[in-house]
């Protein structure tokens, strides 16, 4: 990592937003460095969009601070507009306008000189693979096409930070893969990204940092490993045998070594035993030695990683979307 990659580009300090008695966001602390991708996760109404709207200057916080590249989001909105490219969850379409005209308008709105604008439009269309639709009318585009044009629009003025609200929402599998590749490419180009999504498996593949938020409160923040460690508790271990007939002996051994709380689940057909344990690596090594001594033919012994979906459910306590109780200010 170079020195410049350590630069903090997005930072919030005790960011709070209240609408009357309702607390939409409570003391949120975030820190994001250059080239990092932040996965911003939470059920509907958790406070994600509120945070984003404060960061892009569309909303003012009740208290706390938000900075993008050292620019105060609440004070210097003029500078902020050039630092951020924002893709909202709605496209913001104009009737009777072709894609190139649509991008041309936003380029002109950013006061880009005509020659540079024309070249830049070609660049961003190529980057987002939307060049072939340059003469299409924007209102006739499919959802996936609109997302590409939307990202092209956010890139026009070459901002260092991109904030994308549900970019993969409603996309088919192929388009989702393309979107994922595009986001990774943008990070490689030096952009810092904040991405919200409900498709957690997508985020886990691209995010460097994750923030889980529910009821306006941040429940977890860190790298995926840090989140896993935070939420894992008892580890889930999987023992795979060469032959399903040895399952009973293996189950007995695990129960002897880890006690009745191990929640052993055995499958003779799959020749697998899964169990949970607060065990350290030395104890697991002991298990492997004992199994081999007893003549069990062990094919694999490994820890099942907690995926983002599990982490999210564990952190949020399985809070379903939109069923959050109303939050009252203290």
């Amino acid at each position: 990592m170079t020195q410049s990659d350590d630069q903090v580009l997005v930072k919030t300090v005790k960011l709070t937003k209240r609408f009357g008695d309702f607390v939409a966001l409570n003391a949120l602390d975030l820190e994001l460095r250059r080239k990092q991708i932040l996965g911003f996760i939470g059920p509907n109404g958790a406070g994600k969009t509120t945070t984003i709207r404060i960061l892009v200057g569309l909303s003012r916080p009740t208290s706390g601070e938000a900075f993008v590249a050292d620019c105060d989001c609440t004070q210097d909105s003029k500078r902020l507009k050039r630092l951020i490219g924002y893709l909202p969850d709605t496209f913001g379409s104009y009737d009777n306008m072709r894609v190139r005209e649509y991008l041309d308008f936003f380029g002109a709105a950013f006061k880009m000189p005509r020659k540079r604008r024309v070249a830049r439009i070609e660049e961003v269309m190529e980057l987002t693979d939307s060049g072939w639709m340059r003469d299409r009318y924007v209102e006739t585009l499919s959802h996936g096409m609109k997302q590409k044009v939307g990202i092209a629009r956010t890139l026009l003025h070459d901002p260092p930070v991109l904030i994308l609200d549900e970019p993969a929402n409603g996309l088919d599998p192929k388009a989702r893969i393309e979107m994922r590749d595009l986001l990774l490419r943008l990070a490689d180009m030096g952009k810092t990204l904040i991405v919200t999504s409900h498709i957690l498996s997508e985020l886990s593949r691209i995010c460097d940092v994750v923030s889980i938020i529910t009821h306006g409160e941040q429940r977890a923040f860190g790298t995926l490993d840090e989140i896993n460690r935070l939420v894992s508790g008892p580890r889930l271990i999987e023992l795979t045998l060469a032959d399903g007939t040895e399952i009973e002996a293996a189950t007995r051994l695990i129960n002897e070594m880890f006690g009745p709380n191990a929640e052993v689940q055995a499958s003779a057909q799959e020749a697998q035993v899964r169990f949970t344990a607060e065990a350290d690596d030395a104890k697991l090594s002991g298990l492997l030695t004992s199994a081999v001594k007893q003549g069990l033919r062990v094919a694999q012994l490994h820890e099942v990683p907690v995926d983002l979906e599990d982490a999210f459910l564990q952190v949020t306590g399985g809070v379903a979307a939109d069923d959050s109780p109303s939050r009252k200010a203290n």
Partner: peptide
């Protein structure tokens, strides 16, 4: 025909309004 880019001295909002209007072209 493919329209030209918005000129340097033109108000972009005005051009956008003309282009978006059903009979503004």
């Amino acid at each position: 025909r493919r329209s030209s880019s918005i000129g340097p001295l033109t108000n972009p909002v005005m051009v956008k309004e003309f282009r978006c209007r059903a009979m503004g072209r």
